[in-house]
């Protein structure tokens, strides 16, 4: 028996909008730790890891570890039927091939349940060890989204370089090239507007902008984004999901042929 009640149902709606462009089908795993997902895009270039900790739910019952295969476009269709202020409850019986999404309006005057078929998905699960990153950049998520969008009108790839001067996003294309430098800026009115750069050593890596733009679909989840970089490792682009977890996007770099 599985029963997860999330008072801030809009978080789940935003999570689905953040990942459904990157991943088509995925297994949602439920355990005592929480509700999680790990999936790669169809090209195996990017990976998304979601964790919503059990403590973040108002009610969390998961009698045994359960993996539920879902088409994310179909989940998104279901969740779009929930109001932004609705409480969302996920229910599944042991051995069932369906999951039920229950939506309750805040004043309890409307209760809806949507049942969705589950599917069998063969997914490859990767072990991702904790890594020491050469540079970690924390910046406003809207600023990062704007930079990725702007650069993708010029080129297909972005070079992200971190030095003691700041973090530089560069691209080049047929019409020209572009460089955007963000310096560390902690003298702002609100902490979420700060750009904070922790650098152990300079790093410069090249990534496909198409994927970066896809990651920025998570922008509504968090005011800030954290970008962790190490030479010849995938970049990690992390958005916090309130105080209950995170979405992490991993993207493999491009290297010289």
């Amino acid at each position: 028996m599985l029963e997860l009640r999330l008072v801030q149902g809009s978080l789940l709606k935003k999570v689905l909008e953040a990942i459904k462009e990157l991943v088509t089908d995925a297994n949602f795993d439920c355990s005592a730790t929480g509700f999680s997902l790990q999936a790669m895009d169809s090209s195996h270039v990017a990976l998304v890891a979601l964790l919503l900790r059990s403590e973040g739910f108002e009610h969390y019952r998961c009698d045994r570890n359960l993996s539920m295969g879902m088409n994310l476009n179909n989940v998104s269709k279901m969740l779009r039927c929930a109001g932004n202020d609705d409480i969302i409850t996920l229910k599944a019986d042991d051995g069932s091939d369906t999951v039920t999404f229950m939506f309750e309006s805040p004043n309890q005057d409307k209760i809806a349940d949507f049942e969705m078929k589950l599917m069998d998905i063969d997914s490859e699960h990767l072990g991702i060890p904790e890594a020491e990153y050469h540079a970690i950049v924390k910046m406003p998520s809207a600023e990062f989204a704007r930079i990725c969008k702007d650069l993708s009108s010029i080129g297909d790839t972005v070079v992200i370089s971190v030095t003691k001067e700041g973090v530089k996003f560069s691209t080049r294309g047929d019409i020209g090239n572009a460089n955007i430098v963000c310096r560390q800026n902690t003298t702002v009115d609100k902490p979420e507007e700060a750009t904070i750069i922790e650098m152990q050593e300079p790093v410069s890596l090249t990534f496909a902008l198409r994927y970066m733009n896809s990651f920025t679909k998570a922008t509504p989840l968090s005011n800030t984004v954290t970008i962790s970089l190490s030479s010849e490792l995938p970049v990690v682009v992390e958005y916090k999901v309130a105080d209950m977890g995170y979405i992490r996007f991993y993207l493999a770099p491009k290297i010289e042929d």
């Binding site: 270039v45 990976l47 072990g127 060890p129 496909a208 491009k254 290297i255």
Partner: peptide, 14 residues
Amino acid sequence: WKLQKRIISFYELE
């Protein structure tokens, strides 16, 4: 030319 690496070349399959 830049070669696109794949994510599975960095991490072990579990």
